[in-house]
Amino acid sequence: MEVKYTLQGLLIYLAMAAYVAAFVRRLVGREKSGQLLYTFGFAVCCAAFAYRWYSVRHVPMQNLFEVFLSMGLLIYPVSSFCERVLRVGGRCADMLIGTIVLFPAGFVFSAEPQRLPPALQSWLFAPHVAVYVLSYIFMAKATFQASCQLAGKPPCPDGKVLPAEEATYRMIRAGFPLLTLGLVLGSVWGKLAWGDYWGWDPKELWSLASWLVYVGYFHFRYMFGKRHPRINSTWAVAGMAAIVITLLWVNLSRLFSGLHSYAA
């Protein structure tokens, strides 16, 4: 556990506190103040991200600290977009997801600024990481909906938002193109930097495995539709498990040393 006694750390802790407070207010039915706190947390996250960008002088998505900070920032716009456009609820859970993804940035990973190594000095760096981060948020929301479905508890009983199984499908539909784009951009970048568009590196193979889980989900759902909602949801949860391994285990474990080790 690493407490950050810096302005960067202070901003992250403030955003976390705002997200937690927003979650609690929503839980007790104070929707308006909850929403205000959520918006405030997002604004603080923006400030933390901008400050980091200014400090390191490149798009702050180089290491896990910066990736988790980005996730904390993106959860709010994704949450609003899903509720307004896609009719997928779970805003309350998003506040909690925001806190959870900011926790490693605040307390686990080092915020020591790093210069970009030659391999990361590419126009593909920011889009590759950004689309992955965005897709992970959609998939995290899909997992929440799928978990509600598996637990038999609808996340929001009102008629404005979709039931859990359909919401899971819609979230995966939103996240999968981004996941595909991330994989393809990574492959093109690998070709430019290392000479191979596919290097059989552990990170590449885990990201392929996560992509394939969602491919399997689409095929299974095409075959059976909503007849086996629990199996549909299990695919979604399995996809998220593969993503967590791709994002964390591969970078942090010595078991999977490879070309992506600098991202830790």
Partner: peptide, 20 residues
């Protein structure tokens, strides 16, 4: 198709543990 997809998932995970 589904069996081939699941097989590739399993093979990818095996490959990740085997090293590049």
């Amino acid at each position: 198709a589904l069996v081939l997809i699941i097989l590739l998932i399993v093979l990818s995970i095996y490959g990740a543990f085997a090293g590049a």
